[in-house]
Simulated scan of single mutants.
Amino acid sequence: MHTKAKFLICLIFCILFFNGCKPKAKENAQKKSHVKNVILLIGDGMGVSQISTAFYFNDGISNFKRFNNIGFIRTSSASHLITDSAAGATAFSTGKKTYNGAIGMNIDSLPQKNIVEVLSKKNLNTGLIATSSITHATPASFFAHVKSRELPEDIATWLPISDIDYFAAGGLKYFNKRKDSIDYLKRMRDNGFIISLDSKDLKENLQDKKKYGFLLAEDGMPKMSEGRGDFLISATDQALSLLSNKNKGFFLMIEGSQIDWGGHNNDADYIINEVKDFDNTIGKVLDFAEKDGNTLVVIVADHETGGFTLASSQKKDENNKLINDYNNIKPSFSTKGHSATLIPVFAFGPKSDNFRGVYENSEIYEKILNSLNN
């Protein structure tokens, strides 16, 4: 009888203990499911084969291995089966399919609110980083509304009046060496931006209540093989420090622009070096997201470029017959343009399972907003 009583007391204690833990566990689960920040990384021109180079040509383990939630998007634009970067990025930034070449415009050339404009109104901080010019198709689609990507000086006029809190890229000449002779660096400073033309300033700690812009090349940034160095990681690190310190939540778009340029050039080494840089930047972002706990990370591409593939090379066997050498990868290309291949989406953090499946590129916009609203 004494033993039974002790058993019942222990049983009651365990029930009360575990019931008492339930609210706390639920609270922790709710905390983990809340999205405060979103980091969207776009590898321009980055298809499955480009991503695969990070597994075959990297010295270490690719950061792409750290993702469990993976989907695919169809990238066709409203005007073409094969999209360009402008229509692809506009689909991400506005949720609308549009014609090739459009920057923040719908199929009827009418301006559409982009995600930066929407989230800024909700008091989130915003940032853009690219290894291209800031006026190039992808970053431009997150702050400008212009009928054609071929009008970089028109695109530049939108940046001083934008809600961007931080940007880093090339494109200086579209602000200070313009055909209209207007000094848009001054206009940006007049609108509250602290502008730097020196990459050393990427190492500086920034003041929380200020807006910053870094224009570090006349047009696009140098290739990795030409000495770009740690620009992408340094700018990402600085942006994360600034935007997260403001304590309001943030949206940050980071583009590995030149993966696309390597594809257009049919230059495998160019692609491999740019993917390595992008992969290392992904690692920096994932480390931040893991520590933060309330950051959603989404990695995607606007399209694939080059019809790039990792095929085997050929060699002669003992009978002098040409055979495939399955121990030697020979990158190859089928085009100098874009392709229509489906593009993978990698997601990490709270609500990342919403990015599984196969869907249209324009749905990325709604999935991000829904993740922030729920």
Rank of each mutant, 00 (worst) to 15 (best):
N280I: 08
I15G: 07
A168Q: 05
N106E: 07
T335G: 07
D267L: 11
Q30W: 08
L215W: 03
K179T: 03
G88R: 12
E274Y: 01
A102T: 03
I195S: 08
G60N: 14
P139F: 00
I161G: 11
I39N: 03
K200Q: 15
V285H: 00
R187V: 14
E363D: 11
K246T: 01
N106Q: 06
Q207K: 14
E290F: 03
T83C: 02
Y56K: 10
P111H: 02
G263P: 00
T98F: 04
V285E: 01
Q30G: 08
D190N: 14
T309C: 08
N106D: 13
G88L: 09
S352R: 01
S371F: 00
L119G: 09
T309D: 09
N280A: 15
I129S: 07
N114W: 00
F348S: 13
S77V: 09
S352W: 03
F348W: 02
K315H: 06
N205M: 11
L206T: 00
L286V: 14
L124H: 11
K97C: 06
W158Q: 12
I134M: 14
W261H: 07
V116S: 06
L369N: 00
G171W: 09
R228G: 03
A144K: 06
K26N: 12
N273S: 05
A29S: 11
A130K: 15
S133N: 06
L81P: 05
T157E: 12
G95Q: 04
I164G: 06
L243V: 01
H145Y: 11
D237G: 03
K330D: 08
S162C: 05
D180E: 00
S85A: 11
F7Q: 10
N320G: 04
K203T: 06
S244T: 13
G60M: 07
A289K: 01
F7C: 07
S79T: 14
D198I: 03
H2L: 14
E218Y: 09
S352P: 01
I129G: 07
L124Y: 09
F92L: 15
G127F: 04
S241G: 11
S77D: 06
F143C: 15
N125C: 15
K121R: 13
F18H: 13
I343L: 07
F355I: 00
N273F: 01
S133H: 06
G249N: 02
G95F: 08
K246C: 02
T126F: 04
K246A: 04
Y359V: 01
K211S: 05
I323P: 02
F278Y: 01
S199A: 08
N280D: 13
L41T: 10
T341P: 12
Q238E: 02
A137W: 05
N319I: 02
N176Q: 15
K209M: 10
H80F: 10
M188D: 05
K32S: 10
G101R: 13
N58W: 02
S352M: 01
L124I: 15
N63R: 04
K367A: 03
P350T: 07
D325V: 04
H338R: 09
D230I: 10
D353N: 10
L119Y: 13
D267Q: 11
P139L: 01
M105C: 14
C10I: 15
T90N: 03
T126A: 12
L197D: 10
E153K: 11
A347S: 14
A301Y: 02
Q207W: 05
G101F: 05
G262D: 12
K97P: 00
